[in-house]
Protein backbone atom coordinates (compact mmCIF):
# COMPACT_ATOMS: atom_id res chain seq x y z
CA UNK A 1 0.00 0.00 0.00
CA UNK A 2 2.88 2.32 0.96
CA UNK A 3 4.61 1.58 -2.36
CA UNK A 4 1.39 2.37 -4.19
CA UNK A 5 1.01 5.69 -2.37
CA UNK A 6 4.64 6.62 -3.08
CA UNK A 7 4.18 5.80 -6.76
CA UNK A 8 0.96 7.83 -6.81
CA UNK A 9 2.66 10.84 -5.21
CA UNK A 10 5.57 10.59 -7.63
CA UNK A 11 3.16 10.46 -10.57
CA UNK A 12 1.25 13.46 -9.19
CA UNK A 13 4.45 15.44 -8.75
CA UNK A 14 5.60 14.51 -12.24
CA UNK A 15 2.30 15.69 -13.71
CA UNK A 16 2.66 19.01 -11.85
CA UNK A 17 6.12 19.45 -13.36
CA UNK A 18 4.76 18.62 -16.79
CA UNK A 19 1.99 21.22 -16.41
CA UNK A 20 4.53 23.76 -15.21
CA UNK A 21 6.85 22.88 -18.06
CA UNK A 22 4.11 23.69 -20.59
CA UNK A 23 4.20 27.27 -19.36
CA UNK A 24 7.96 27.43 -19.72
CA UNK A 25 8.09 28.38 -23.39
CA UNK A 26 7.76 32.00 -24.46
CA UNK A 27 7.35 33.63 -27.84
CA UNK A 28 9.87 36.35 -28.69
CA UNK A 29 10.12 38.83 -31.55
CA UNK A 30 12.48 41.42 -32.87
CA UNK A 31 11.72 44.77 -31.15
CA UNK A 32 10.74 46.19 -34.55
CA UNK A 33 7.68 43.93 -34.74
CA UNK A 34 4.78 46.25 -34.01
CA UNK A 35 2.53 44.02 -31.96
CA UNK A 36 3.07 42.91 -28.37
CA UNK A 37 0.50 40.13 -28.33
CA UNK A 38 -0.58 37.38 -30.67
CA UNK A 39 -3.55 35.03 -30.82
CA UNK A 40 -2.92 31.26 -30.88
CA UNK A 41 -4.52 31.11 -34.28
CA UNK A 42 -2.27 33.83 -35.79
CA UNK A 43 0.79 32.27 -34.18
CA UNK A 44 -0.06 28.93 -35.75
CA UNK A 45 -0.55 30.58 -39.16
CA UNK A 46 2.88 32.22 -38.98
CA UNK A 47 4.67 29.06 -37.88
CA UNK A 48 2.96 26.85 -40.47
CA UNK A 49 3.61 29.15 -43.42
CA UNK A 50 -0.03 30.19 -43.85
CA UNK A 51 0.75 33.81 -43.00
CA UNK A 52 3.76 36.11 -43.15
CA UNK A 53 2.38 39.04 -41.21
CA UNK A 54 1.47 39.83 -37.64
CA UNK A 55 -0.19 42.98 -36.42
CA UNK A 56 0.83 44.92 -39.52
CA UNK A 57 4.45 43.71 -39.56
CA UNK A 58 6.00 41.23 -41.97
CA UNK A 59 7.38 38.37 -39.90
CA UNK A 60 9.71 35.42 -40.47
CA UNK A 61 9.51 32.39 -38.14
CA UNK A 62 12.70 31.05 -36.59
CA UNK A 63 12.70 27.47 -35.31
CA UNK A 64 14.64 25.52 -32.74
CA UNK A 65 16.27 22.37 -34.12
CA UNK A 66 15.32 20.26 -31.10
CA UNK A 67 14.94 20.33 -27.34
CA UNK A 68 12.29 20.72 -24.69
CA UNK A 69 11.21 24.24 -25.66
CA UNK A 70 10.77 23.07 -29.27
CA UNK A 71 8.59 20.12 -28.28
CA UNK A 72 6.52 22.21 -25.89
CA UNK A 73 5.94 24.95 -28.44
CA UNK A 74 4.87 22.55 -31.18
CA UNK A 75 2.53 20.64 -28.89
CA UNK A 76 1.00 23.75 -27.32
CA UNK A 77 0.57 25.98 -30.38
CA UNK A 78 0.85 23.83 -33.52
CA UNK A 79 -0.60 20.54 -32.31
CA UNK A 80 2.01 18.39 -34.06
CA UNK A 81 5.20 16.60 -33.18
CA UNK A 82 8.48 17.75 -34.67
CA UNK A 83 8.55 15.19 -37.50
CA UNK A 84 4.99 15.96 -38.64
CA UNK A 85 5.61 19.68 -38.33
CA UNK A 86 8.70 19.66 -40.52
CA UNK A 87 6.97 17.34 -43.00
CA UNK A 88 4.29 20.01 -43.36
CA UNK A 89 6.91 22.61 -44.19
CA UNK A 90 8.53 20.29 -46.71
CA UNK A 91 5.18 19.98 -48.50
CA UNK A 92 5.18 23.74 -48.93
CA UNK A 93 8.78 23.64 -50.15
CA UNK A 94 8.17 20.85 -52.69
CA UNK A 95 5.05 22.57 -54.03
CA UNK A 96 6.89 25.87 -54.45
CA UNK A 97 4.95 27.76 -51.79
CA UNK A 98 7.67 28.42 -49.23
CA UNK A 99 11.24 27.95 -48.16
CA UNK A 100 12.08 26.11 -44.98
CA UNK A 101 12.43 28.46 -41.96
CA UNK A 102 15.85 28.78 -40.41
CA UNK A 103 16.42 26.30 -37.58
CA UNK A 104 18.91 27.20 -34.86
CA UNK A 105 20.75 25.01 -32.37
CA UNK A 106 19.67 26.47 -29.04
CA UNK A 107 17.62 29.06 -27.20
CA UNK A 108 20.53 31.51 -26.93
CA UNK A 109 21.12 31.32 -30.68
CA UNK A 110 17.44 32.10 -31.30
CA UNK A 111 17.57 35.13 -28.98
CA UNK A 112 20.74 36.36 -30.70
CA UNK A 113 19.28 35.92 -34.18
CA UNK A 114 15.87 37.44 -33.40
CA UNK A 115 17.46 40.41 -31.66
CA UNK A 116 19.52 41.29 -34.73
CA UNK A 117 17.15 40.47 -37.62
CA UNK A 118 14.14 42.63 -38.35
CA UNK A 119 10.78 40.91 -38.52
CA UNK A 120 11.89 37.63 -36.98
CA UNK A 121 9.82 35.74 -34.42
CA UNK A 122 10.87 32.70 -32.42
CA UNK A 123 10.32 30.75 -29.22
CA UNK A 124 12.61 29.85 -26.31
CA UNK A 125 12.54 28.45 -22.83
CA UNK A 126 11.31 31.03 -20.32
CA UNK A 127 14.49 30.75 -18.22
CA UNK A 128 16.73 31.77 -21.12
CA UNK A 129 18.01 35.36 -20.85
CA UNK A 130 16.29 37.33 -23.58
CA UNK A 131 17.67 40.85 -23.58
CA UNK A 132 17.27 42.66 -26.88
CA UNK A 133 14.00 40.98 -27.90
CA UNK A 134 10.38 41.59 -26.99
CA UNK A 135 8.17 38.91 -25.48
CA UNK A 136 4.81 38.46 -27.19
CA UNK A 137 1.86 37.59 -25.00
CA UNK A 138 -0.08 34.67 -26.48
CA UNK A 139 -3.82 35.21 -26.04
Amino acid sequence: MKKFLNAFLLAALASIFVVQAKAQVIVIANPGVKTSEVSKSDLKDVFTGASTSLGGSSVVPILLKAGTANEEFLQAYIGKNDAAYRAGWRSLVFSGQATMPKSLDGDAAVVEFVAHNAGTIGYIGKATPHDGVKVLAVK
Binding site: A87, G88, R90, S91, F94, S95, Q97
Partner: peptide, 9 residues
Protein backbone atom coordinates in the same frame (compact mmCIF):
# COMPACT_ATOMS: atom_id res chain seq x y z
CA UNK B 1 -3.25 18.96 -57.30
CA UNK B 2 -0.39 21.08 -55.99
CA UNK B 3 0.85 18.30 -53.73
CA UNK B 4 -0.28 15.22 -55.62
CA UNK B 5 3.32 14.35 -56.47
CA UNK B 6 4.68 14.98 -52.95
CA UNK B 7 4.51 11.50 -51.52
CA UNK B 8 5.93 12.44 -48.07
CA UNK B 9 3.05 14.84 -47.45
Amino acid sequence: NEIQDIDPS
